[in-house]
Amino acid sequence: MLSEETRTIIKSTAPVLEDHGVTITTRFYQRLFEEHPELLNIFNHANQAQGRQQTALAKTVYAAAIHIDDLAEIMPAVIQIGHKHVSLGVKAEHYPIVGAHLLLAMKEVLGDAATDEIIQAWSDAYGVIADAFISVEKSMYQKTAAQENGWIYFKDFTVARKVKESEVITSFYLKPADGSNVPKYTSGQYISVRVLIPGEKYTMIRQYSLSQASKPDEFRISVKREADNDPNGVVSNYLHKEIEAGGQLEASAPAGVFVLDETKTSPVAFISGGVGITPMMSMFESVADSSPERKTTFLHGARNRSQHAFDEDIRKYAEGMQDVTYKTVYSDEPDGFITHALLEETVDPTGEAYVCGPVPFMVSMIRELRNIGMPEDHIHYEFFGPAMDMPK
């Protein structure tokens, strides 16, 4: 529990954190990696280079400041970030290191404005927040380890098959190298893949949605190949160009909170853009298998037909469903976007909607779903990037 005085001090720093948060977190990461370069084996280098991780952390710290009177308000974010941390292999012993460097960065950036009282208050608050993360993640690790065929951290997998789905998306079918099965997962979850690319000093970790419904003996991830000069494309290009059937990869157990609610029977819509189709494939297959009578809409936006993945698979699943609408639009063609009118025509606002894709696409889809009358808590979405980095 934090004292009223501590909470008052923390709240008073919110405006400063809103203005200077990214500067503080940028300096924090610089300090952290100077002192603990081994943590570069965990953090996404591309997100660091582009400033996305710094922005995400600044938003998290600011959210803690404004909700310090009721930290339960940030628990959904703690759980979402906790899933990401567990998939990366973050450990309890990392938190004191992070806390020490965050406070030092705060003092360094704010100078005399960061009084001893403010630093002590944030030290106390960080301790409470860190304990929440450690507790949540400990429970997740225990649950992951205890499930059938479960493990924690990373495990060796063999690429059983490599299948090109479109001009830019390729699927990798992964089987445990030890011949065991994989744990059951909920459609929409992701795994982390860890690689050590020749010539690189540190391992790189990326999260990829599981793109098929749960199977007992394998995972499938479907990876978009980014441009060669895109910092986000280092791992995807390595997978596309260097990893073939028979190759080895390390993977985490499934994680993530963007999942299909399989208890619902109301109408459901899957709305995706680009590689955002990958978690939708898992969800759509699950509905086709377990609830073929459920009214279902699948809307997808791709750049053009050559970049449109999984069209045949979706049509195959749809054949066994009783009430399904499937439509794809191509942005390279006139009127090639998912519009308000198309949503109004195909999506039942009393049902549920799952949205995934590039940020501008998602922002537009979420806004238009609200505009056709869908309640906020019926709209579910996933964002590819650091937690807390999703625009409202």
Rank of each mutant, 00 (worst) to 15 (best):
T350L: 12
H340E: 08
T328A: 09
Y354A: 10
L342D: 00
E333C: 01
Y326D: 00
V329I: 03
E344C: 04
E345A: 14
K327A: 08
G351K: 10
F337P: 04
A341E: 15
F337H: 14
S331Q: 04
V347K: 07
D332I: 01
D335P: 02
E352M: 13
D335A: 10
K327Q: 12
E345L: 10
T339N: 09
F337R: 13
T339H: 09
V355S: 12
T350V: 14
A341C: 05
D348G: 11
E344Q: 15
H340M: 09
F337G: 03
E333D: 12
A353N: 06
T350C: 09
T328E: 01
Y354V: 13
I338S: 02
P334R: 03
L342H: 01
T350Q: 13
S331N: 05
T346C: 13
K327F: 05
L342S: 00
T350G: 13
T346L: 13
L342I: 08
E333G: 03
I338M: 05
V347Q: 07
D332T: 07
D332C: 02
E344I: 04
P349F: 14
Y354H: 09
E344M: 10
L342E: 04
H340Y: 14
E345G: 04
E352R: 12
I338C: 02
P334C: 04
Y330Q: 05
A353G: 09
